[in-house]
Design a protein around this nucleic acid. Structure first.
Lengths: 96, 96
DNA sequence: ACGATACATCAACGATTCTTGATCTGTCAA
DNA sequence: TTGACAGATCAAGAATCGTTGATGTATCGT
């Protein structure tokens, strides 16, 4: 188990911060089953459009989500790469 | 993979929040190798006493650390239970 | 008892984050 | 074109968080 570099720590903090909010966790939970457009999420999460957009951006900026425009709709999905990254981060936090 | 209950989500957000800070992650990293007293951490992390105490409390309040007073010193260590909890949380976030 | 040491807590302030409502952009249908 | 819809972005205020320095509390050595 190697020591974490400063950049790793900053990155881990960024990831954790993005997940440190109940609304964002609900978004992630909903996306486990696959891509959804913002309109679906708005209905499912019962939240204002602006608020939802803010949290989606927070997750996207952290690399947790990716988005894809299709016609009038934008679809969000979990980024598989970051899931692996999370697992690594968790491993490095876990005690020996 | 069952759906997360509201309480689970709040708890996960609490855990992630506690880890969403570089100073706190450095503390956790140092404690991977076992218990340390605050004085050791102060030296190792090169941070003010008050600041360190604040972050230790944040981690402890989230259940990530436990503390133990011994004479003049207070020792902090990772809470093994919460490590398992983190792994579960991660599993529930991870896509199918 | 007294001073020193280890740490917690408090109060005040700045910084960051979140929410809300308004406005802007892009896409489609008529 | 025009209007409607999906969504992003912006601006302002509220709330939360982190930092700093000062003070409080417990324990120890003398």
């Amino acid at each position: 188990m190697k020591a974490a570099k400063a950049a790793d720590i900053e990155r881990a903090a960024e990831l954790f911060h993005a997940l440190a909010d109940a609304t964002r966790l609900r978004i992630v939970e909903r996306l486990r089953d696959g891509e959804q457009c913002v309109c679906d999420l708005t209905g499912a999460l019962d939240t204002g459009q602006s608020r939802l957009s803010f949290h989606l951006r927070t997750l996207k900026d952290a690399g947790i989500l990716r988005d894809r425009r299709q016609g009038r709709w934008v679809y969000y999905a979990l980024n598989p790469d970051v899931m692996e990254e999370m697992a690594e981060v968790l491993g490095s936090i876990r005690g020996a």
